[in-house]
Amino acid sequence: MSEAQTASTSGQAAGTTRQAGTAGVKRGMAEMLKGGVIMDVVNAEQARIAEDAGAVAVMALERVPADIRAQGGVARMSDPDMISEIIAAVSIPVMAKARIGHFVEAQVLQALGVDYVDESEVLTPADPHHHIDKRAFTVPFVCGATNLGEALRRIAEGAAMIRSKGEAGTGEVSNAVVHMRTIRADIGRLTALPAEELYAAAKELRAPVDLVEEVARLGRLPVVLFTAGGIATPADAALMMQLGADGVFVGSGIFKSGDPARRARAIVEATTMYNDADLLVKVSRGLGEAMVGINVTELAATARYADRGW
């Protein structure tokens, strides 16, 4: 595998060659998901409900984060049979999670044909020191981040999409808010710095200076920034969009609620019309019970997924 896998094709004009696995198609794929909702699903039936509700993609995993918390044990990549069933069940993109640093799980997911790999802190990390070298893959990766430095370290490793980590499986949005605000504030500071101060900024952020310069110039990340971790209601999704997220991951919030199909539709509509309070009223009515949730402040330090990775 190489960054630019070249395959020549026959029977076409001008001897066109196709380059797969480029940064352009990896980052571009995430651009197409913007304004959309990506939903955690654990089987084909849930995947169909998500697609029917208007999800832009589904995230295949064995247990939603709330169950991983409740049941404990090691959380790993999903069963390939389950992932294949989900791929067969829906026409939208299918993502799947690999453990932090577990590059062989990622190789398996790529060979299965998943469209995006989430190197996720929700699963039990396989390597306490090193994340996956994501540049070595044709499949694109999304990674979690709590601040700008972390986001840029993942992008340097080849991540083509970033999501705030939040605190998955809690149904409590506060950490997603903190992470999104932190990333945006870190970016805002960079844009105000004179060029010669970006080197020291890179040192403090523990991130490559070329990426720091790019962020200072663009005023945003060079890749799409979604939000994740604790989104449970349409208002939560709209909150994160108003805070500047490009789109929303919803994990336990849908299938741990009273009426998943209805809540899924409501969160999709709220993500599109996030600035329209009248619409938010309408879609927030009659959703049944939200997931019960856990207050993040009551979590033991060892139970915080956001602290996994660096």
Binding site: A13, R18, G113, D115
Partner: peptide
């Protein structure tokens, strides 16, 4: 699927000049 996504240079009728780089 996404692993088959690609970039290529294409001649497009109505777009004069060098080929269009298509994603």
């Amino acid at each position: 699927r996404q692993v088959d996504s690609f970039e290529a240079d294409l001649d497009v009728v109505g777009v004069p000049g060098p080929p269009v780089h298509a994603v």
